[in-house]
Amino acid sequence: MARMTMIEAIRDAHAVAMERDSDVVVLGEDVGYFGGVFRCTAGLQKRFGVERCFDTPISELGIVGTAIGMAAYGLKPIAEIQFADYMYPGYDQIVSEAARLRYRSAGEFTCPMVIRMPTGGGIFGAQTHSQSPEALFTHVAGLKTVVPSNPREAKGLLLAAIADPDPVIFLEPKRLYNGPFDGHFDRPSVPWSKHEAGDVEPGYYEVPLGKAAVVREGSAATLITYGTMVHVALAAVAESGTDVEVIDLRTLLPLDLETITASVRKTGRCIVLHEATLTSGYGAEVTALVQRECFYSLEAPVLRVAGWDTPYPHAQEWDYFPGPERVRRAIDKVMEAE
């Protein structure tokens, strides 16, 4: 067992997958010789050769489009989009092509590929390096969407995504790359070496897609979240003094509805938390499902805490970011209702 950052864990997942399957190839901007702007692919080209890990021109449609062709051929491409914010030129290829190839060919052609992209803010990246576009993927039939929240699970989820026979969007919360950021931006940051989820098993293991995790058991309310916000939620709950159950969805699609409903039926109160903008965000889907499945258990309206419906600002980053204080207020509010 080694303590790793999320970057090292993701890099290790690549190496393990490439070692056991020669069809796994890695492509993207700066991923080759340099090893990626976040270093997630460092050393892979040297170890596996330029045909297995190579730099691409700056063309997200080219990266995704050629990866689709490679996947249809029989390879297992892992395409890195440098920031989720840069994904849009490749979005048509993802939505109209990767997501539908199996369907429209009745299974004759398939697209087993992983598209990785760093997501979310908290790094003073402003509107072009901070977006959380997960709802743009979960809305598309034929895509799976995964958001890990710690190194150990990032490795296992990425290996499961690579093994999956369909296209998987793998959103890596960049603020978690180096430590479990809990939203207290004014405090010293904690590295993964100080956190038990930084313990990463060697070799191959999968964390199954479509399974949520209860990361804190509680009886008073349920807080459903994923990615960076898992750590924000845990901090807020600890500070609130309320016994809130916290669920890390890990996979947004397919969604583990069972874990959600079991918890909300138990607690009767529910908050959905994400960093992405509120309106038509992924939380709206979760809220609607909770309402449908748990209506008669609910003691209070389901609340959502999310990014404001503005582009991600620069100077006002921490006014935008749904930090522990906003989450605490939501916990108090959901507990107020009789």
Binding site: L61, G62, G65, T66, A67, I68, G69, M70, A72, Y73, G74, L75, Q93, E97
Partner: peptide
């Protein structure tokens, strides 16, 4: 562009 990717494979 997918054809190019297929040929790359």
């Amino acid at each position: 562009v997918q054809a190019v990717g297929w040929a790359m494979a």
